[in-house]
Amino acid sequence: MTQGLEGPRPEERPRPEGRRNAQGIRIDPEVEAEPAVRRTVISALVTHEPGVLSDVSGLFSRRQFNIESLTVGPTEDEERARITLVIEEHEPGIEQAKKQLRKLVPVISVRELEPDAMRRELMLIKVSATRPDRVAAVTEMYDGKTVDATPETATIQVTGSRQKVEAAVEAFSQFGIREISRTGTTALARGDDRTAAREESPVEYEADGTPTTPQTTHSDDD
């Protein structure tokens, strides 16, 4: 037999006891559990130049990060834009997303926002205006604003957290929804805290090497 090599067969070899999970973390096989997925908001300060948005969206689709919304807009500095991403990933996935984002050359800084950060989105919702009084009542209930009204339709603007906007959609659905357009979430950190500063602090590690990251789930505020 000239095919192959000599040596103990696979079943004759010693085998190690340990195992890793799909994220490459060593685990106790007895208590193996899938890591929990959480939703979080990532804010990136980027140079305001053509192509940045496609770099970022391309990165997220190529690496199969689970992305819920992506918004982009100008900032206080005309040479900088802010991209706000809402992603849903397990812990290692969130860390990867932040690091990959930071690697793009036009990205200046990246920060995962604390659970108490201010998060808002804007929705335009167009409904049938067959029951104008009821529409007005629901609009008021959600702090909405009627921005267009015709005999057939009413278009209402609602702003707030994702939960609030979703609840509003639910409430308006009784009138027959014609069209919806939502901006996706934009966000800022509270108080003195910079959302994504020019000089970001490097990832901090515990002495054993695990990165210190907020573990809490974002509770949508309003």
């Binding site: 990867q96 090497g209 695990t210």
Partner: peptide
């Protein structure tokens, strides 16, 4: 040298 490689595929106890 690339922080994104740390714990991408294999978790590093000492990054």
């Amino acid at each position: 040298i690339d922080p994104a490689e740390i714990s991408k595929n294999i978790h590093a106890e000492y990054p």
